[in-house]
Design a protein around this nucleic acid. Structure first.
Lengths: 195, 195
DNA sequence: CCTCCGCCTTAACCCGGGTCAAGCCAAGGT
DNA sequence: ACCTTGGCTTGACCCGGGTTAAGGCGGAGG
């Protein structure tokens, strides 16, 4: 078993026989990415995904109007991939970029589907993953609906302390749905208020 | 088979043996709700969900600060329930209210889990449902990130033409994340611009 | 018929965030 | 040591949406 920690993590979501995990490891490939290198770019087929072994990524949605907004940051142990596009069988509209030198474990969707046919545990795992993603998105939706930008900022750092110092401020702004200028003002406002 | 249309709809997501569907119908109960009646209220256990047979519902999240925001509208053929809370085994933080006299088909989560143990098709169906919900939430997230309130309004009516005339304007506003005053202004602005 | 109520609109005022532009600072490259 | 470069800050100005408050209007009930 090459990735025991990852196995632990997944097995905590749903029972996962070690021999099934061995099959998964057999089809997965490690990939290293330099800082700023893209794991996926807009227009790519959404036919693979990966687990972050080391590093941090940002998922950037390119809007038709040229605006960039950040869908999520992903660090060690988390999944990267154009999940929504994969489910809809659309080409990726998302760029996934390494913010640090990173290593990931890549799976082809096709290979994963083969695993699913072999054992129900993969079906269950996929379900858990979908459910978790849903819960996260719903939480974020709610934050947009009833929190101010400043409150969203506070919550962001409460929920992602491990990202401190690893992501540029402008990306935090794009994640919160404001500009870096506005974020800078909020931060200085808070500095002042705290004397 | 009491609900052939519903069966069709679900079977289009994943193969669903009619005999399994029969078991589901056996545990489901019909319920009628008057206008303004609540299918679920905040604090209730999130241990049941339903399919709308007739009518429209709104899912309202009560924020601690007394604000109400609308998570979704649900009409015929769609699911209602505190899905996120169910997944997290939390009590509902959502009120689900009938906006018209309505009929729904209610399932106890417990009963559905029993079905899952009996046949994998339910596991698959649950996965598809989770995935669909995820895709919808992600779409909405993206709208908050790079659309103005006016653009969100236009998109809302494009995507929900069947709700025209069935939901009060103030609820549309709460769904878009603005006040009814702001919505009224946007509408009149658009009226003027169109001469 | 009139009144009340629910729902929507309009107006005045304020404030947060967008936009544009200038400037600061630290890290790297030459 | 110098000049880029990237990332952050600050200021001035504008605009959209929040807030509050005052009507308008149509439907239900007395």
């Amino acid at each position: 078993m090459r990735f025991p920690k990852l196995f632990e993590r997944l097995a905590s979501l749903t029972p996962l026989p070690p021999e099934e995990w061995a099959k998964a490891e057999a089809v997965a490939k490690e990939q290293s990415l330099a800082k700023r290198e893209l794991f996926m770019r807009p227009g790519d087929a959404a036919d693979r995904f990966a687990v972050v072994l080391q590093g941090v990524f940002r998922g950037v949605r390119m809007s038709p109007r040229g605006g960039e907004s950040i869908k999520a940051f992903r660090a060690e142990g988390e999944l990267i991939g154009a999940y929504a596009e994969m489910l809809q069988q659309l080409p990726s509209m998302t760029a996934i970029e390494a913010l640090e030198p990173s290593r990931v474990l890549v799976f082809q969707t096709r290979d994963f589907q083969a695993l699913e046919r072999g054992h129900v545990c993969w079906e269950r795992l996929a379900r858990r993953v979908a459910e978790q993603h849903f819960v996260l998105k719903e939480r974020r939706e709610q934050e947009f609906l009833d929190l101010s930008a400043e409150e969203r900022l506070v919550k962001f750092w409460e929920e992602h302390p491990h990202l401190k110092g690893r992501i540029p401020q402008r990306d935090v702004a794009a994640y919160l749905g404001i500009t870096e200028v506005a974020l800078s003002r909020i931060v200085s406002r808070r500095r002042k208020r705290a004397e």
